[in-house]
Amino acid sequence: MNETSAPTIPEQVMPSPFRLIATLGLIAMLSGFVIVLVYQITAEPIARNQREALERAVFTVLPGAESRALFRADETGITLLTDEELAQANVFAGYDNQGQLVGVALTGSARGYGGEVRVLYGYDPAAEKIIGYTVLQSSETPGLGDKIEDDPNFLANFEALEVSLDPETGEVAQPIVTVKEGAKTEPWEIDGISGATVSSEAVGRALRESTLEWLPRVVSHLDVFKQAAGEDH
């Protein structure tokens, strides 16, 4: 610790170094105690808040879904997770009230104007379309870049954004691209926001990279998602 940080004004009695260190040590212990206490008390509500925010987001991007299941997708395949393993989940499947698969929700991220933009999107494998989108985290400029969160015209892009897979190779046929506002002509293009070009392009990039990487894997394991519907809901 920095005992020397106080100005060295000459004093009548200079306390011993031991007393200085003891004081700082005592205060540090007290502070450690308080912090650990608060940490313990708040850990549960914080985890709950985060869980609830994520659940809300999953149901936003999968319109019509009534229940959901958690999965982890990696190199080895796709595994079903329990609710306690939420932190490891990176794929979410939503089911309607008959237990039919509505779609899967995946995350994507890209560097925007003010930092990382993380989005969650819902993909309907039957229609081969993105059917919903929400921003999980962004620090885009308020009033300009943060329009990617609530601009109605921009959000309309993600009601049915085509991402079809090539039947032969299983890869994405037409990668998503962001175009200038009003210039959208193809179903896989995103109509950008003028005045928020960097941010809307970041969204497009996040979706493109995530779909290129994950969709082929997800679609080839569709049975895993369909099967999970009967198990725990």
Partner: peptide, 16 residues
């Protein structure tokens, strides 16, 4: 709190 370590102590308390 001795005068010599007061700023450090204050900062620890505030940071807590």
């Amino acid at each position: 709190i001795p005068k010599q370590v007061r700023i450090a102590s204050y900062i620890i308390i505030i940071a807590t």
